[in-house]
Design a protein around this nucleic acid. Structure first.
Length: 216
DNA sequence: GACCAGGCACATC
DNA sequence: GATGTGCATGGT
């Protein structure tokens, strides 16, 4: 009989063999990753890229500059990412938080412990568990496991968890079985998203999925 | 032209 | 506390 912890490692080996290293998150700076984490909420990444390109083109990828920008102009720039009115508000809530707590200094933020940061991020209107954890892992290099719609779907399709399992419980499922490791968690979540995109949508292609035939 | 995307807050019962 | 709904663009 296989040990429980090796189950998630098996899954990872399969996906990694299929895709190779994915080197997430696609973003040049921690701040860019944070902005991307908010913009990608329920949104295809290709649309987020356009919005980030607009911000870069105008040299606005900076907490102070972005906060100084009139909301209307910000909305226009991030328009391709969808939900632009909502996301303008969410971005501005986050920027105000960043300035108030850390004076816009990401290095200062990074020095704080992970649990404290998570709690504070979750208190920001517009930042939920996935966005908070994405920021912690991909921008601040904290060993937290990110759960998203794909992760949820893949686990439940393989009868490892139930569809309605709450976010924190799913996160514990990974945390209890995998040693804390930033680059491993980083790569693991990236792999899951790719599997989700390619094989595990609402109209799944399980027959061609690299996870096909895994026995647990 | 329908369907979907790397969520979240808020209303309503 | 559970369940439903609005938010919006762009790719398939």
């Amino acid at each position: 009989m296989k040990k429980r912890s090796s189950l998630l490692r098996q899954l990872y080996r399969r996906t990694f063999k299929h895709y190779g290293p994915l080197h997430w998150w696609p973003g040049e700076t921690p701040f860019e990753v944070m902005v991307g984490a908010i913009l990608t909420q329920n949104t295809a990444w290709t649309n987020v890229e356009k919005a980030i390109r607009n911000l870069k083109k105008n040299r606005l990828l900076d907490p102070k500059k972005l906060l100084k920008l009139p909301p209307q102009k910000l909305a226009r720039l991030i328009r391709p990412a969808g939900y632009f009115n909502v996301k303008t508000k969410r971005l501005r809530h986050f920027l105000k938080f960043l300035m108030a707590e850390y004076n816009g200094n990401i290095s200062k933020m990074k020095r704080r412990p992970s649990a404290e940061l998570r709690e504070k991020l979750l208190a920001v209107n517009g930042i939920g568990p996935e966005t908070a954890d994405s920021i912690l892992l991909y921008a601040l290099a904290k060993p937290v496991f990110v759960i998203d719609a794909y992760t949820r779907r893949i686990l439940s399709r393989h009868y490892l968890t139930k569809k309605e399992t709450p976010y924190e419980a799913l996160q514990d499922f990974f945390l209890q079985r995998l040693k804390p490791d930033v680059s491993f968690y980083n790569e693991y979540h990236a792999q899951l998203v790719n599997i989700g995109k390619d094989f595990c949508r609402n109209n799944p292609r399980c027959d061609q999925c690299p996870l096909n035939g895994l026995n647990w």
